[in-house]
Computed example of a mutant assay.
Amino acid sequence: MAPFDTGRLDALMEEAGIDVLLATSKHNTQYLLGGYRFIFFSTMDAIGHSRYLPVVIYEKGHAENSAYVANRMEGGEHQNHPFWTPAFHAAAWGTLDAAEYAVEHLRKIGKGAARIGIEPSFLPLDAYRLFSERLEGATFVDATGVLERLRAVKKPEELEKLRKASELVTNAMMATIGWARAGTTKTEIIERLRQEETNRGLQFEYCLLTLGPSHNRAASDQAWREGDVLSIDSGGNYRGYIGDLCRMGVLGHLDAELEDLLGEVEQIQQAAFSKVRAGARGGDVIARAQSVLKASKVAEFTDFFAHGMGLITHEVPFLMTNHPVTYEGVDAARPLEAGMVVSVETTMLHPSRGFIKLEDTLAVTNDGYEMFGERGRGWNRGATA
């Protein structure tokens, strides 16, 4: 039995004019396989002269014709925990042999000349050329939007993974801030965070860190000094799902100006939160936060942003256009749905105090929202000497 809503996928494929789907991205093959991702290629794709190319094949209305084209080493995975797809091909080492097996399966189920949905941004050129040459009469359709919409509303088990990811990232950041002291460098702080996240069962993905008045978030030998603020923004992966949050630290005395500045950020965050609920337009969340930001005394150097998240850090709902990531805010006029997950972030680039930011994760509910990983939203203290 397929681990996703086949009726929803069938409807989305019908609307997009797709007969059969070829999913080739790690995140979408993971979703279609019920959360599975092959550990050998979890953090890289390259092998020899080629790369790993998983392919999940799904025919509209006929889940019984589904197949998974895998790497040869995944045969052992199938023996331990069989994949749900009726057909399984663990015979590929690179892109071309994976594409060959996909072509063979499409022909077997009579879809060699069908309208085939692909992921253009996640389909290597050599594999696409092979599909084009071998599947005479086929029409290729961009299925990116179909798969994004399929993943938009999270199942309870997905929400639990996102909650866990957010809590573990927050706990790791709190421990890291409490460990760092005067003289600790950015590079050392980032490495400590990596250890804290890994020890909690997360796969560390990134840390964007600032110290003092600098707005530079890259690793360096810059050291934390007494009175400096620290901004720590990190993504940690828990079983495929992303925890992405930002928290603030200060070393030494916490003055009234810093309390006030973070308070301005918090007001903007709360304005956005107040509009989050199932049925509300996504654009209303943005408009409310921006109206409060516009009236703020820190508006000149402060920005607001919100985006959907789940298996990847920017997914449905897409709420803003080219701000800062280059995609269209196609969901601004659409209602939020219970089970969607939104990241809400307000960033201040203060000219003298530095980078001051909060980023929070909200799961949309019927009557509002539930926040994941809500610890440490105020000023957190670094270690004393």
Rank of each mutant, 00 (worst) to 15 (best):
R8H: 14
M13P: 03
A23V: 01
G34H: 07
Y36S: 05
F40P: 11
D45N: 14
R51P: 01
E59N: 07
E64Q: 12
E64N: 06
E77K: 02
Q79E: 12
T85G: 10
A92I: 00
A92M: 09
L96F: 12
D97A: 06
L106N: 02
K108H: 09
A113S: 15
E119I: 00
F122L: 00
F122N: 13
R129C: 10
E133S: 11
G137N: 02
A138W: 01
T144R: 09
E148L: 11
A152T: 01
V153I: 15
K161C: 07
K164V: 11
L168F: 09
L168V: 07
A175K: 14
T176Q: 04
I177Q: 05
G178V: 04
T185S: 12
T187N: 12
L193V: 09
R194Y: 08
E197Q: 13
Y206P: 03
A223N: 05
D244Q: 12
A256M: 15
L258Q: 15
D260A: 13
Q267N: 14
A271L: 03
A272P: 02
V276K: 09
G279Y: 02
A280W: 08
V285C: 07
I286E: 08
I286S: 00
K294L: 10
A299I: 04
F305G: 10
F318L: 08
A338L: 05
M348A: 13
S352F: 11
I356T: 11
E359S: 13
T365M: 03
Y369C: 07
G382I: 10
